[in-house]
Design a protein around this nucleic acid. Structure first.
Length: 584
RNA sequence: GCGCCCGUAGCUCAGUGGAUAGAGCGUUGGUCUCCGGAACCAAAGGCCGCAGGUUCAAAUCCUGCCGGGCGCGCCA
């Protein structure tokens, strides 16, 4: 195995040296620029050069000369593993020399070839899915699940220590209602029509659970009070439903390091209330202060829940940017979801995480401000708290929307979607779009085996590399990594492929820095596109064929390149959790 | 009314303050004596929602407006 080299890092250091040498009087400024996340760019495709730098523009102000002049001064003093050239209006384009180029390609043997350590590796907690155990996962949960999982992979690739966490809301009114719904169904099955229980949850899974519950408790209803029955039924249902949720996620290759249950936080709640009280952030009232004048829409969804408003203890989140104060303890002494959630988030910081990331559905958008306010009020650094909100998923079939409504029972569960398309299209499509925007998932397209289907397109590129390498082997040709041989890779299509491979580590580092997983499919698609182009060109022009016994040196070089593309694609697919098949 | 998010090619969307704004689909026209054509090439198609501002440089940052999505008591 060859030792890995990071040509970009070498070039950046050489650029810094040359800049200091050319303009020693602004050394401090230069140091600042290079210490930040300053990185190299890519020249337009029709220009020479593997990298480009805009350093001359950034130095224009302190140096007080034209960017082009500055670029020339720096380029003239540049000493590194590349040839540098200053071009108007002031870019410095750099072409890596052969030795560094092939050292990079050989370094791809190292499984960490695409991993570039973040400047400040940190302990990161990513909480995602966290669906309530009151029913099966739906398609929207799948989006958050995939984004959270791949963000974890991406940050780990950048050297961070990542914990995947699921927050289980396993107490409270909804679990009570779940228990009642189960008992309602039990009564129905038994022909008992006394109507003692509410049927909040009605899906087919409730009936299944009710039958299981009856089987395990044939003597049901003999002695118990309704209250203890509801609790037992709730516990029974939530445990089974959470198991089911975990099985669904495992089908997508998603697992968690830690599951924290709301129940386990109970002991921390009184402590939290005392702490908030000591900080002077609590008050008792019938309604939050300063909210009378606020206008609300009557058709607001949450109004449905607003039956009782008997007052209680409020937390002054409005002092820290929230729209109004939030209740943390009801008049009857019970606490709310929000109270437990504060305990939970404080706990994450107390456990030593440097950064806390939550991946929530768009319908939780209103919670961001209050959570941030609560943390700020307690003295935590809210810059270390990030929320990624996932917008809605619209399902399409044959280009038409699949309507989903709970009432009509026309829900497609995540399990059903996996049955239909398999894991890979789901993962890939949900990654393709920024979480900030709603996305469409076209079931018809997801199972198609052609260029139109991006996941197929990438997997096919990988399979194609494997088949070509196998073909070479049958003809007695093996990849070569001798620099003498590799200089034969002179066609523009080959140079373009190499140049693209060179930029992958930086692309991944940038994606990690910005916590943006949707860049991954983009990178994979571009690599696939370049490779397919190269292969089809070889069909047209036999001079570009990879496997050619008549020209064994050239073949060996090209096979090496094909093998590097294979590794590149495999790495990208692995980061996305998508399979890399050797044949389709 | 308030908050968050989104307005980029006919459609779906990329775009890290940099060079002539890019892909896929769709449209039109092409490509193989087949290393997997399950692929590729070319053409057409753009007031980057509108108006200001910051900057050497704005699709990108700031402000205001217009249009769309989601949310807006103590359900989680």
């Amino acid at each position: 195995m060859q030792e890995r080299r990071d040509p970009e890092d070498e070039i950046l250091r050489a650029l810094e040296r040359a800049s200091r040498e050319a303009f020693p009087e602004v050394g401090a400024e230069i140091g600042r620029i290079f210490a930040a996340d300053f990185s190299l760019g890519t020249p337009p495709p029709d220009r020479d050069g593997d990298y480009s730098s805009n350093i001359a523009f950034l130095l224009k102000k302190p140096v007080k000369r034209s960017p082009l002049e500055i670029a020339r001064e720096i380029a003239a003093r540049f000493e590194g593993p590349a040839v540098s050239e200053a071009v108007p209006p002031g870019f410095i384009n750099l072409t890596l020399d052969d030795e560094a180029r092939y050292a990079f390609l050989a370094g791809m043997d190292d499984p960490r070839w695409a991993s570039r350590r973040a400047k400040q590796p940190s302990r990161v907690n990513i909480e995602f899915v966290s669906a309530n155990p009151t029913g099966p996962l739906h398609v929207g949960h799948g989006r958050g699940a995939v984004i959270g999982d791949v963000l974890a992979r991406l940050l780990a690739n950048a050297g961070h220590d990542v914990t995947r966490e699921y927050y289980l809301n396993d107490v409270g009114r909804q679990i009570e209602l779940l228990g009642e719904s189960l008992l309602y169904k039990v009564c129905e099955i038994r022909g008992d029509s006394r109507g003692r229980f509410r049927d909040e949850y009605r899906g087919g899974y409730i009936e299944e659970l009710a039958r299981e519950f009856l089987n395990s408790r044939p003597e049901l209803f003999v002695e118990e009070t309704d209250e203890s029955l509801i609790e037992e039924a709730g516990r029974f249902a939530k445990e089974r439903l959470f198991e089911k949720i975990k099985r669904t996620l495992e089908r997508l290759d998603i697992r968690f390091d830690v599951v924290t249950s709301e129940e386990s936080l109970r002991s921390g709640i009184s402590e939290l209330l005392e702490r908030l009280d000591r900080a002077g952030l609590l008050y008792e009232a019938d309604r939050p202060r300063n909210t009378e004048a606020r206008i609300r829409r009557e058709d607001s969804k949450a109004a449905v829940y607003g039956e009782e408003m008997s007052g209680g203890t409020f937390l002054e989140t409005s002092r820290f940017g929230d729209d109004e104060d939030r209740i943390v303890k009801r008049a009857d002494g019970t606490t709310t979801y929000f109270t437990a959630d504060i305990v939970y988030h404080i706990g994450k910081f107390e456990r030593g995480f440097d950064e806390v990331i939550d991946i929530w559905g768009a319908d939780h958008g209103g919670h961001v401000k209050r959570m941030r306010a609560a943390l700020e009020g307690l003295g935590y650094d809210t810059k270390r708290f990030h929320v990624i909100l996932c917008q809605m998923v619209r399902l399409l079939r044959d280009g038409r929307e699949v309507k989903m409504s709970k009432r009509s029972g026309e829900m497609i569960t995540l399990d059903e979607l996996i049955d239909e398309t398999g894991k890979d299209p789901i993962r890939f499509y949900f990654l393709m779009r920024t979480p900030n925007a709603p996305c469409d998932f076209d079931i018809t397209l997801a199972v198609k085996a052609s260029t139109e289907n991006p996941v197929f397109y990438c997997q096919y590129a990988h399979a194609r590399t494997c088949q070509i390498l196998a073909r070479g082997k049958r003809d007695g040709l093996e990849p070569s990594r001798e620099q003498r041989v590799l200089t034969l890779l002179a066609d523009p299509l080959e140079k373009d492929l190499v140049r693209f491979l060179l930029r992958i580590p930086d692309g991944l580092a940038a994606a990690a820095r910005r916590r943006e997983v949707h860049r991954l499919p983009e990178i994979a698609l571009e690599l696939a596109r370049r490779f397919h182009r190269y292969q089809t060109a070889g069909k047209k022009n036999s001079g570009l064929r990879v496997v050619d016994k008549e020209r064994s040196d050239l073949s060996a070089a090209r096979l090496f390149l094909v093998d590097r593309v294979r590794r590149g694609m495999k790495t990208l697919l692995a980061l996305m959790g998508v399979e890399a098949p050797e044949q389709m």
